[in-house]
Design a protein around this nucleic acid. Structure first.
Length: 874
RNA sequence: GCGGGCGUGAUGGAAUGGUAGACAUACCGGACUUAAAAUCCGGAGGCGCAAGCCGUGCGGGUUCGAGUCCCGCCGCCCGUACCA
């Protein structure tokens, strides 16, 4: 018997062509079956797909194919997140137009994705840089503007004074511009914002309605939104010390109970009070200027050394008119949060303590931890932020922090300062409005005009789309729209006079905040066809990287609310189910200081020691750490190479098999080879058995009773049951392990199968092999299809129903329980499957191990968990 | 800095609070082969001749029983609002 080796290079394109011609994966909204929308985060068209894409899309494809087999009407589209900075960088470096660069990248990535054999509906494809798409985004923007969801305000950007351009946070390295090396300055610009804060409370409370999201993502969003209930509290400023026009200073605090521990106030460098004082205090002006040379990212601000400047202004303690504390300007206070001013309580906040120790401010503990002596309790270098009882706090002494909060709030709400209440209760959110203005070319133009008479005017809807000009130059840095000779000049739709176009384009997060809705009617004249969008949405299963846990997902959640308000959707949440996959990582290699790609490395293993040499030069190579695949470290494996040599099924199978899908997976050559061997193994198993099987659907399975045949049936049904549950829970690696087990069993029990084997065995073998083929079909669609044909079946396995599990085949007559003495396993106990607790107890006490352990005595305790364990405590 | 996560054999990992290491990779031995590859069979957490003891990043705790739950550390990863 000779078997032909499975050749994916010939088989895969052949079936892909046939699926394509049959329109197998094109979705019709009115097709039968309950709808199911599965979506993977669409890729940025960098030019080549990477292993992370293979993993992401393989997972989504398993879900899509599985749900189709379960009878659902599945929507599984693909598109391109095509605006953004890399295209502009390429334009500057290689003098290629961003559009040309982007569309060429899309063309090559589309070809690569198609070689993966994904069950995507390509007829719905679009790129966010298509005029057709951003036209509808401009319509949405105007609707948002009309409903008060878009507005302008001043905010800060990173400014490179040499390149005269705005920098993204990632373009700022150690406070300097990445190209010019110049010290970055903060600069204030008037920019466009979307009012995500209107929905802060709803975005928070609706997290509870998302049970199919990972807890960690919901928690991250909750903390990001950052709802806190506190007190807005005004401190009088001592008359001799305060500047003109600043009688008091409002701070926000969630801990008014610790007010007697206050030792300073601190305001943000941008706070009006700081600005006023800086007008007459050059040293403060210099301090503020220094703070502004830091970049705008929260990370940069918070990791910088905490510094303050003592203004000389003193603030009067709201609970004690004889007590004043100094007012500082501090680099760690954020103008965006609360009032841009805080009070410092060093004893109970680590950051305040660090600040107080540095500037030799008093540290007065006011919360006494349980079991501490109030006369001896002292704070040294660690602040105490736990619970306790208030002390050193006058009328608050003895209260809990919660009661202290209430007492202070009640007292200060009633007190007045300058004719108004000293304090008021306030709910504050950490979440800020979404700044969408970008001073860049390659993005969706914001469709408004600036008219000298009418001010800011929305572009008339009939004048949309506002398209990007094609004749641009990237010779100079900065926004090409700004210096375009004619593009800006237009007329005002309101007065007909001369007007200038807005040159800001939109953040690319806007593009990705509604693409899932556009897929439901990708060619509609309006942003959505509401009836169709409502029928398909929400996305039932969304799959993508954990790095999007907050921003992209939160913006999308905001967008469906805004689109609901403006009548484009009737939907509460965009993504019903969410799954966050891990990254694909790989070992790194270095030849001296130069990174070396894996393709140029030969690994040897001797006496358990791994060593490496460079293929092209023969020089020894240092094996480095396992890191996220990245161009800079060259530790990338090109999926095209893998698909070219092993085939798409092998790449998909390996990406699904080796690690839990939410964790990182390490790409290894050996793992890929192992997956390829398994492909061949399945092929051999099916091909060798096929000639000896009964004709399709001729096998009668009901009266099978022979031991061998029954064992085959049980194995197949047990596996089908397990794999079904695994895929439902997206446990692909476990599904793969079960399929391995089934193939191991079948390879053994079908080894000698021939035409003269028992009829029962041959019938069971056909059933088992068909189950196997259907189970692997979502993961390795080409191999499954080829096996399906070899088994004598017509048509597409992709159109076949998922295997039906016979529950009767899942049960065994007896079970073997581990038998523990004092929690340690000392034996096994085999009992009938339906044995009662009492029967198991009796059987356990009768065993030799237990009798030895008891030594004639009585057990102290007997724990029986039927189907699980028996534990005898002696 | 802050928020979130992860940590189990040589390696990737499995394990509703219930037999730690399923399944796979690498490795070792055997069969087949002139030989190799492929394939098939077998072995294997550590220590020990064995009975057994020890083992899930480190230190505590809860429990009849902890990889799993709680507290405190360490290390790595993600996010930190203009990377996508």
């Amino acid at each position: 018997m000779t078997t032909e080796r499975y050749n994916p290079r010939a088989v895969e394109p052949r079936w892909q062509k046939q699926w394509d011609e049959a329109g197998l994966y094109e979705t019709k909204t009115d097709a039968p079956g309950e709808k199911y929308y599965v979506l993977e985060m669409f890729p940025y068209p960098s030019g080549r797909i990477h292993m992370g894409h293979v993993r992401n899309y393989a997972m989504g494809d398993v879900v899509a194919r599985y749900k189709r087999a379960k009878g659902f009407n599945v929507l599984h589209p693909m598109g391109w997140d095509a605006f953004g900075m890399p295209a502009e960088n390429a334009a500057m470096q290689n003098k290629v137009h961003p559009a040309k660069w982007t569309y060429e990248n899309i063309a090559s990535m589309r070809a690569q994705l198609k070689s993966m054999g994904l069950s995507l509906d390509w007829s719905r494809e679009f790129a966010t840089c298509d005029v057709d798409y951003y036209h509808r985004q401009q319509m949405l923007f105007l609707d948002f503007l009309d409903s008060g969801l878009a507005y302008r305000k001043k905010s800060k950007v990173n400014w490179d004074p040499v390149d005269m351009t705005v920098l993204a946070n990632e373009q700022v390295e150690d406070g300097r511009g990445w190209r010019s090396g110049a010290l970055v300055e903060q600069r204030e610009l008037t920019q466009w914002f979307l009012k995500i804060t209107d929905y802060a409370d709803d975005l928070l409370s609706a997290l509870d309605e998302l049970p199919n999201w990972p807890d960690k993502v919901r928690l991250m969003q909750k903390n990001w939104i950052g709802k806190s209930e506190g007190l807005m509290l005004r401190w009088a400023l001592a008359p001799q010390t305060r500047p003109e026009g600043h009688e008091d200073l409002a701070i926000f605090t969630t801990r008014p109970d610790t007010l007697y521990g206050a030792s300073f106030l601190a305001v943000a460098p941008d706070h009006p009070l700081a600005q006023t004082i800086a007008g007459t205090d050059p040293a403060l002006a210099e301090f503020i200027a220094e703070c502004r040379r830091a970049g705008t990212s929260a990370e940069a601000l918070e990791t910088a050394e905490k510094k303050g400047y003592r203004t000389g202004v003193e603030a009067v303690h709201p609970l004690d008119p004889d007590w004043t504390v100094p007012v500082y300007v501090a680099n760690f206070v954020l103008m965006d949060y609360g009032t841009g001013a805080v009070f410092g309580c060093p004893a109970h906040d680590q950051r305040d303590l660090d600040f107080a120790l540095k500037y030799e401010l008093p540290v007065r503990p006011v919360v006494l931890p349980p079991k501490e002596d109030p006369t001896a309790f002292t704070i040294y270098s660690d602040a105490y932020d736990g619970d306790g009882v208030l002390f050193n706090s006058d009328f608050l002494d003895g209260l809990s922090p919660e009661d202290g909060f209430e007492a202070v709030a009640a007292k200060l709400e009633a007190a007045t300062l300058g004719g108004e209440a000293v304090a008021e209760r306030k709910v504050n959110f950490r979440l800020r409005d979404w700044g969408i203005s970008r001073q860049r070319y390659w993005g969706c133009p914001i469709p408004v005009l600036h008219c000298e008479t009418c001010g800011v005017v929305p572009e008339a809807r009939e004048n949309l789309p506002v398209t990007l000009p094609e004749d641009i130059d990237f010779e100079k840095p900065g926004n090409p729209l700004d210096r375009h000779p004619t593009w800006r000049k237009t007329s005002c739709p309101k007065c007909g006079g001369e007007a200038l176009r807005e040159t800001d384009t939109m953040d690319t997060f806007v593009d990705s905040s509604w693409y899932f809705a556009r897929f439901t009617a990708p060619r509609a004249e309006t942003p959505t066809e509401p009836a169709i969008a409502n029928a398909w949405l929400a996305v039932d299963q969304y799959i993508g990287g954990i790095e999007h846990a907050i921003l992209h997902l939160l913006y999308s959640r905001f967008f469906v609310r805004a689109m609901k308000k403006t009548g484009h959707l009737d939907l509460d949440e965009p993504f019903k189910g969410l799954f966050t996959q891990g990254m694909v990582v790989h070992e790194t290699y270095k030849d001296g200081r130069e990174w070396v790609p894996p393709a140029d490395v030969v690994i040897r293993e001797e006496n358990g020691e791994r060593s490496a040499t460079r293929l092209s030069t023969g020089t020894p190579i240092t094996i480095g750490g396992i890191e996220k695949m990245s161009k800079s470290k060259k530790n990338v494996v090109d999926p095209e190479d893998i698909i070219g040599s092993y085939g798409a099924d092998t790449a998909r199978w390996f990406m699904l098999s080796d690690s839990p899908p939410d964790r990182d997976v390490i790409w290894t050559e050996a793992g890929a080879e192992g997956a390829f061997r398994f492909v061949q193994r399945v092929w051999r198993l099916v091909q060798e058995a096929a000639p000896h099987l009964p004709a399709p659907s001729k096998a009668s399975l009901a009266e099978i009773s022979g031991e061998t045949a029954l064992a085959i049936r049980k194995a197949a049904h047990r596996t089908a049951h397990g794999v079904t549950g695994d895929i439902e829970r997206l446990g692909f690696n476990k599904a793969v392990a079960r399929v391995h087990e089934l193939v191991n069993i079948l390879a053994g029990s079908l080894a000698g199968l021939s035409a003269s084997s028992e009829t029962e065995t041959r019938a069971a073998a056909r059933e088992a092999l068909e189950v196997l083929v259907k189970l692997i079909a979502p993961m390795m669609p080409h191999l499954a299809q080829e096996c399906w044909t070899v088994l004598g079946r017509d048509g597409f396995v992709a159109s076949e129903a998922w295997p039906q599990v016979e529950d009767g085949l899942l049960r065994d007559d007896s079970v073997t329980l581990p038998l523990q003495i004092n929690g340690k396993k000392r034996g096994d106990l085999t009992v009938p499957a339906e044995a009662s607790k009492a029967e198991i107890e009796e059987a356990a006490l009768a065993t030799q191990v237990v009798r030895d352990a008891l030594n004639g005595g009585q057990p102290k305790r007997l724990v029986v968990v039927p189907g699980r364990i028996v534990n005898v405590v002696v």
